[in-house]
Design a protein around this nucleic acid. Sequence first.
DNA 1: CCATAAACGATATCAATTATCAATAAAGAA
DNA 2: TTCTTTATTGATAATTGATATCGTTTATGG
Lengths: 149, 149
Amino acid sequence: MKKRPDTVSAKQRLDQMLSKLKDHDFRITPQRLAVLKVLAASDGHPSVERIYESVRAQFPTTSLATIYKTVALLKQENEVLEISFPDGSNRYDGNKPFPHPHLICTRCKKIIDPDLSSLEDLAKEVTKETGFQITNHRLDFFGLCRECQ
Amino acid sequence: MKKRPDTVSAKQRLDQMLSKLKDHDFRITPQRLAVLKVLAASDGHPSVERIYESVRAQFPTTSLATIYKTVALLKQENEVLEISFPDGSNRYDGNKPFPHPHLICTRCKKIIDPDLSSLEDLAKEVTKETGFQITNHRLDFFGLCRECQ
DNA sequence: CCATAAACGATATCAATTATCAATAAAGAA
DNA sequence: TTCTTTATTGATAATTGATATCGTTTATGG
């Protein structure tokens, strides 16, 4: 079984995203490029609002709608993972745009990615038990990080 | 290790909810009772809209706001589990108001509760690895049920 | 049956997201 | 390089699920 590397460099991720968009005949605009850079570089699971601020630092006339549209495009192209919460605060992961577990501190809102060896086994267990054909999953743990305890 | 029974009868659940509300000095109104009954009885993870329809069948003047308020109260009292989705369609589980995995058919929107023996191990693995103090979790599998494949 | 405060119902408000559309600009062709 | 086409942008309106407001109603204990 070949293992996909969990993380690549920001530069590599940016190139991956650019290739995907170019291959699918989407135009590379300065605003889009700025959004891609934020998502490729950041490991902090930024919100749309957070991306908006970063992009505006470089292109002050950028509209919030453009951020939403670009994120939606990346989501559609499977180049970003959307992590949504009940309180309506969506966060995005452009580094690892595939399902993976999250560990969320309910106090400082930090989100980290733990390594969980036994997760694949769970999916298999479910398939065997129910006959479902599983294509996707989401696993979040909530609690207090070491610093906030 | 004592195991909490996963499911109880609708009657039992209704009584549990009623006791909790009475003990905490909340009033039992006909509208609230109707909402409790829907949540205690249904195993289909109903939406607010769905609860609204059921309650209105019996009390046609009931307001949607009342459903929201009652559900929020039950959530606060840990008597209902909220399952929220990116598209804004929240669903509720009054039978098992504690974290448990869900298996969601992306086509017919059915939600079922699989038995997963190895889930507790995962939480322990995370705690050991990261030092997080885990209080809560959410695990959803998405895919196609046997009928929809 | 009364008094009181909780809960109700109708509706206004809110916040996040999506839709609209005229103006702009990316990208390939000439 | 300039031209042409059409996707994309930016400003803003519309939408939607949920929450807040507030006068009226009613559950509950005395």
